[in-house]
Design a binder for these strands. Structure first.
Lengths: 230, 230
DNA sequence: CGAATATATTGTAAAAAATACAATAATTAA
DNA sequence: TTAATTATTGTATTTTTTACAATATATTCG
């Protein structure tokens, strides 16, 4: 390569993760309280600059791993943001990912760059630095559209869940309501959610049956041309 | 900023465009014959390194503009590729876009970096440099999934088109076949394709009616909760 | 133990959408 | 006028979606 390319090799690339979690109060996003400049002492999306010797996806996974201590997190690249002035230190492109985690598996895992992390209800997100509010809005739309066509909702629920919980998850994310009977009919007819034979315990009313998602059955269905669509 | 960030600002970012076109022989992709290193004298996706003072989308649009001479091209970001060794000159991330153009509006528009450009049928794509075959495969899947849920197919057709052409477009992209009667019933029931009152000329058989896409009607429908799904 | 409370579970009829299927119409060319 | 070629259209059947409310199972409290 001759010198005419030099001026291009002065950009940085970061990853930013929109980490979703879900509990009985609704959909939540994990934010970190920045302990370093720029935007020290602000809530922001967890992210990091990428070292030149690290693959994109590895970098995104490492951020998540450091933050949550969890392995095998469901992640998906959503969009790359690259406005000229989005970062005060220079030209930084950021590749955004969304991640879905089981909120009850999450244990706070202090890392060197995050003083603190906390779950924020999706409807109570503060002003975020950089273009993080824009990224979050994008991620929310992506999740909404994705969850209707792929069985990824289960990533947000415990291994065993009730149909009421499942319905509530879909209702939160899609911002709509379903008829209880029709929702159950449809979900169960898809044949990849199976009864565990177990029931809820420690509830003060009729306990619900516990179900689990059967990924193997789902991929069998896909191979026969089945298309999930809620 | 202090010196500890310096090592991150040594990456380059490029854009690569997967430009789709369609005619009676099927779906096509526009490739350029590279006149400069690296990979001089290879067919490749049209793309360019991004200057530090250029926004991502502006850069992608400029590549298309220089290549086709067309304005207002339908473009959409699809994915960012960033494997460590994907570029021989250093760490280059590339943001891939797909673009849909009306193939008959396209006139070859020689640009400084492209010696030649040509349409390749989607089934006859040669080996491409970098990870361009991977990018192309990704774009094809994206187009397939997108075209079922958004009325973007019209971007590939002339302003006035026959229902047979429209059906053939969908069949090419989705790699399936539709029943003629059912396809027409469904498309026309969606109410945003209107009869122009015109007919084909210079055909040696019964001429077909010419229709046009009505974007205004489509957005009205969307606002009433309508969801396009083919 | 019975009643009150709370949530879970289930079926059916009507409407809408998807599917399967083939005859007729309009044009040019011979 | 006929042959050739493609365009256009309808209907009956099946499947899916929708709308709608009564009964079941557990706990807690008198």
């Amino acid at each position: 390569m001759d010198g005419k390319f030099e001026s291009y090799f002065k950009a940085a690339v970061s990853v930013d993760n929109v980490v979703f979690g879900f509990d009985h109060t609704g959909l939540k996003v994990l934010l970190i309280y920045r302990g370093a400049d720029p935007y020290r002492n602000c809530w922001a999306l967890p992210g990091d600059l990428i070292s030149l010797d690290t693959n994109l996806i590895d970098s995104a996974e490492k951020v998540l791993q450091d933050l949550t201590g969890l392995e095998e997190i469901y992640m998906e690249q959503i969009h790359t943001f690259g406005k000229v002035d989005r970062h005060p230190y220079g030209r930084v492109f950021t590749v955004a990912y969304f991640a879905l985690i089981k909120i009850e598996d999450y244990h706070l895992h202090p890392s060197s760059w995050a003083e603190e992390a906390a779950w924020f209800p999706i409807s109570e997100i503060p002003d975020l630095p950089f273009d993080h509010n824009e990224i979050l809005a994008f991620a929310k739309e992506q999740l909404k559209s994705k969850i209707r066509r792929q069985p990824i909702g289960f990533e947000l629920l415990p291994k065993h869940f009730t149909l009421t919980e499942l319905q509530s998850l879909y209702e939160s994310i899609l911002e709509t309501e379903f008829d209880v009977r029709n929702f159950r009919k449809k979900i169960l007819s898809m044949d990849f959610i199976s009864d565990t034979g177990l029931k809820q315990t420690s509830v003060t009313h009729r306990p619900a049956k516990l179900y689990k998602y059967n990924a193997k059955r789902y991929s069998n269905l896909i191979n026969t041309g089945f298309a999930f669509d809620l």
